[in-house]
Amino acid sequence: MKKLFNISFLVLLIVSIVYAKKPSEHISDMVKIPAGTYTPLYVNDTTDQSVQVDEFLIDKYPVTNQEFLEFVKKNPKWRKSNVNKLFADERYLSHWYDDLTLGENVNPDAPVTNISWFAAKAYAESLGKRLPTVAEWELAAQADESNPNGYANPKYVERILEWYSKPSTKNLPAVGSVFKNYYGVYDMHGLVWEWTADFFNALVSGESRADGGINRNLFCGTGSVGATDFTNYPAFMRFAFRSSLKANYTTESLGFRCAKDIN
């Protein structure tokens, strides 16, 4: 009888191991990021501005040229000869040979770039997904290979800075080529910049886009944060980059990946 118990226990154990390994949190090519807190780079004053982020799914890889080509095939209005300039500027998909041909010099598995926010958003919505928020993206990007908070490791921050200081290359490598972080998300740093759903939430405290108040606020805030936490420097660069973006803007180093709510 004892043996019976042992065996059934063993079976249960095996089953539960198999079950636990089954990537129930993975919906196809997405990875679950557990709930967490994201502290924005610059804080206006004494009020707590940290953002509670619910658990969510994020694409393992940035969206590739090939994947975007499939989308464009199904959605003629997003072909580069059709697209409305309000939604994507003249550099949109300019590295592709034509509307439906990538061309010899374009790696199909490289992240798609020269993409506007509107185009990225439309792609995501066509799959029932959305773009990640800044808070979500930053939360997922904090992790290095072994730790959810990689920023605690100065080496990790150095690596990111090193990438930022490299000029962007015309021939991007395939997705998955940089590194896989703690959550199983690839290429969060080191491949392309990525669009976020609410990139426009950067730089909102200024009275106008024209006056100098914006920059003053930006640099004041950064000064005080930077003094205590050097590790935020790459985050500052991303912040500055997002502040410079317009929704129809495209560039060869800016791509995207999708996110999704859980439930």
Binding site: T47, V51, W117, F118, F200, N201, V204, R209, K246, A247
Partner: peptide, 18 residues
């Protein structure tokens, strides 16, 4: 989503605070 689209076209930036 539609509000964000319109805001984006007008260069109107906004952010929800805590």
């Amino acid at each position: 989503s539609d509000i964000a689209d319109l805001a984006a076209l007008m260069g109107f930036r906004y952010k929800k605070e805590n």
